[in-house]
Amino acid sequence: MPEIKNKTAQVGETATWIVATIIIIVILAISIFIASFYLGKTKEIQETNPNYPYTRIAEIPAYKSLFSYMLTKDSGGETIHSQLKESISFNEFNGNLAKKIFLEFYEKEYTEAWLGAVSNKDLVPTSGNDYFGSPLTVRGGGQGGYILEMIKLDENKSVALFLTRE
């Protein structure tokens, strides 16, 4: 009888170690898989904007394009900056030009672009517009955060360009 008892104990102990070994191997396999396929890829460095979370450092060519766009004059000699300061709604001239620059000219560079008015307080777009549709925030944005370029119109509002890249 005592021998039988010992045997049961030995079988129980062996079973425990087999299970323990399997658990150890599974945990190691998962760790190796994560390290190899997710963390082990060549690491890319991305710049983030310290002033605004979820946005990336401004890109100089895009900002310069926005600046030049605001300085473009219509046939009457009025700059787009003045036009938007008076009325934040795009007219045919500045709306079509914005579309040509930020949607057509930048088509290969950015997956999405949205230009419109935002509140200076929280950068929330005041509304959508006929040329760029609803703001990107409504559509969910892109991976890696937005690239945000802004030009102030007055104390309350700015013109903002949101760009996303894959």
């Binding site: 060519p61 310069k64 394009s65 030049s68 620059i101 560079e109």
Partner: peptide, 11 residues
């Protein structure tokens, strides 16, 4: 590749 829209002095 980066694009840039700009104006000359005459606009």
């Amino acid at each position: 590749e980066r694009g840039l829209y700009t104006l000359d002095k005459e606009g």
